[in-house]
């Protein structure tokens, strides 16, 4: 479904990402793990069109989408839940969701809004509240629901558990599990490598801007050279 080949992205003089190869099949849940500064966010940003790659290509369902704008990619079915959630704090919860569904027709949007209300009751309960007043867990739910409003075929998430207390981290991983059981295609960047590998079909390990390993959870866990990626593992 998604095919990334030899993708390179630079910030000024620094290559944050070098020759990255990656693929995601339909219905797969794929994790991107690795230490901070490894280029995970850069990789997602380059796929989603927030950053323009210096070299390489990204294809989605056989179409070359390298360097396309995020708004175009969303219409093709690629959505990203950005790092730090990036909720529109001054807009109400419902307005946030509506923005998520801006590409849908009016009727469809209303239907999706209803669907999200069923799936995330807390969002329905607080639909007229300014989103800036939501708690960390609630706003993460809103961020994911907002992305789902566009009916994406590929949903990418950047650090969905970042800054959340462990209780709420559980909630996020349960949500990923649910989406997975619905057959959605997910590409998730996570610090929490141990937890990520429990829910992912496969994962890629990035380090210093390069993809250094790829495989299923058990394969990756057994590689001694990747030990430091998992050591400690915030998994309480």
């Amino acid at each position: 479904m998604l095919e990334v080949s030899r993708l390179t992205t630079r910030y000024g003089a620094i290559s944050a990402l070098r020759d990255a190869d990656l693929h995601v099949g339909s219905g797969e849940v794929v994790g991107l793990i690795g230490p901070n500064g490894a280029g995970k966010t850069t990789l997602l940003g380059s796929i989603a069109g927030l950053l323009s790659p210096a070299a390489g290509s990204v294809t989605f369902d056989g179409t070359d989408i390298t360097g396309n704008s995020p708004e175009k990619l969303l219409r093709l079915g690629v959505a990203l839940v950005p790092e730090h959630r990036r909720i529109f704090g001054d807009l109400t919860v419902e307005e946030n969701l509506k923005i998520g569904g801006i590409t849908q027709s009016r009727d469809e949007r209303a239907e999706l809004l209803h669907e999200m209300g069923d799936r995330f009751p807390v969002l329905r309960e607080k639909r007229t509240v300014a989103a800036g007043y939501l708690s960390g867990g609630e706003s993460q739910q809103l961020a994911i629901a907002r992305a789902l409003m566009s009916k994406p075929r590929l949903l990418m998430m950047d650090e969905p558990s970042l800054g959340l207390a462990p209780v709420l981290v559980d909630v996020v991983f349960e949500l990923i599990e649910t989406l997975r059981s619905q057959g959605r295609t997910l590409l998730v960047v996570e610090q929490n490598a141990t937890r990520m590998l429990e829910v992912a079909d496969r994962a890629y390990v990035l380090r210093s801007g390069e993809v250094v390993a790829e495989g299923t959870g058990s394969e990756l866990r057994e590689r001694p050279d990747l030990f430091d990626t998992f050591v400690g593992g915030n998994g309480q």
Binding site: L50, S69, P70, L74, L80, P82, F88, I102, S150
Partner: peptide
């Protein structure tokens, strides 16, 4: 409020 995120939503 947040131009990049709005674009990610398809604006």
């Amino acid at each position: 409020a947040d131009f990049d995120t709005a674009r990610l939503m398809g604006v």
